[in-house]
């Protein structure tokens, strides 16, 4: 029992990271109905921005985190502007293929410029472990969970309380009707990329702190898993991404602990297949009948 609880703590840490990435997928899908497959690579860019902030500038955790979020936000903005906006009225498959292209471009540029070998992420948080009853918790896990919670609360505030956030929800629900309200849809979409990319960068820095290694291809697998998390929760739904991320993180950690570590990456895809068979609209998504 204690062992299960222990793994739950580990799973929630990992799951918060997936959730942060999944939010970007789901928000962009909301406003653009596009799966932005380059999103995992923006997360990688964020991790490296945090890495350089810490190594080259010698910055601490919070400044490095903010810097990473800023750099990734800029990447998101440029990717949307250069790669996706020209395809706004093109068939959806064109944008999807472009997204895969942007992903490959970022990964290969990463290999070229950053070198392919993994790097040790600087010790932004010195490791301390605490014994809480039967559980062992370390301060890095607490930082990950706390950072994720704060960022998600901030996001919730933006989406429900600010003018831009309300416009985001309007565009996600009915883009054309939003234009009739006087909403500049292009600007809202750009803002959504900024927001999603910044959250992914935060996840990148947190992963650097947790696993202490980063490399240019690090975005591939977490990107896919976060995508599965977004689908699991209900694509387009912000609470769904949070829930799906946590679920995937916990499931992965439990399977590794109690079944086999060779199943680590398979778990997410098994879940994807199950959700597509049982409830393709996701846990929080409405079924077709409910929508009608």
């Amino acid at each position: 029992m204690a062992e299960v609880l222990q793994q739950l703590v580990n799973g929630i840490s990992l799951g918060s990271i997936y959730a942060l990435i999944a939010l970007g997928y789901t928000m962009v899908y909301g406003v653009l109905k596009l799966i932005n497959f380059a999103h995992g690579d923006v997360y990688m860019v964020g991790a490296f921005a945090g890495f350089f902030a810490a190594t080259a500038f010698g910055w601490g955790f919070l400044p490095a985190l903010c810097f990473a979020m800023l750099v990734a936000a800029l990447f998101g903005l440029v990717i949307e502007r250069v790669a996706y906006r020209p395809l706004r009225n093109a068939p959806r498959i064109a944008a999807l293929i472009t997204a895969i292209g942007v992903s490959l471009l970022l990964e290969n540029l990463g290999i070229l410029i950053l070198r392919p070998d993994p790097r040790a992420f600087p010790e932004l948080i010195r490791l301390e472990t605490y014994q809480v009853g039967p559980l062992i918790v370390n301060n890095r896990q607490l930082v990950i969970i706390a950072t994720s919670v704060v960022l998600m609360m901030l996001l919730q505030f933006i989406v429900t309380r600010t003018r831009m956030g309300k416009a985001m929800r309007a565009v996600a629900e009915d883009t054309e009707a939003s234009r009739l309200m006087g909403i500049n849809v292009d600007r809202v979409i750009a803002f959504t990329f900024v927001l999603g990319s910044a959250l992914a960068a935060a996840a990148g820095v947190l992963v650097g702190i947790y696993y202490t290694r980063i490399d240019p291809l690090m975005g591939f697998m977490p990107g896919l898993k976060a995508f599965v998390a977004a689908v699991l929760g209900g694509i387009g739904l912000i609470p769904g991404a949070m829930l799906g991320g946590l679920a995937i993180g916990v499931a992965e950690v439990l399977v590794v602990a109690f079944i086999s570590s060779s199943w680590k990456d398979a778990v997410a895809f098994a879940i994807l297949i199950m959700i597509l068979l049982l409830k393709p609209t996701g846990i929080l998504g409405k079924t077709a009948e409910e929508k009608a």
Partner: peptide, 17 residues
């Protein structure tokens, strides 16, 4: 084309965007 997942008040506020 009202925003079904938002309240009446939020819909009116969006009109005044």
């Amino acid at each position: 084309r009202i925003f079904a997942t938002m309240t009446v008040r939020e819909n009116l506020d969006l009109g005044a965007y």
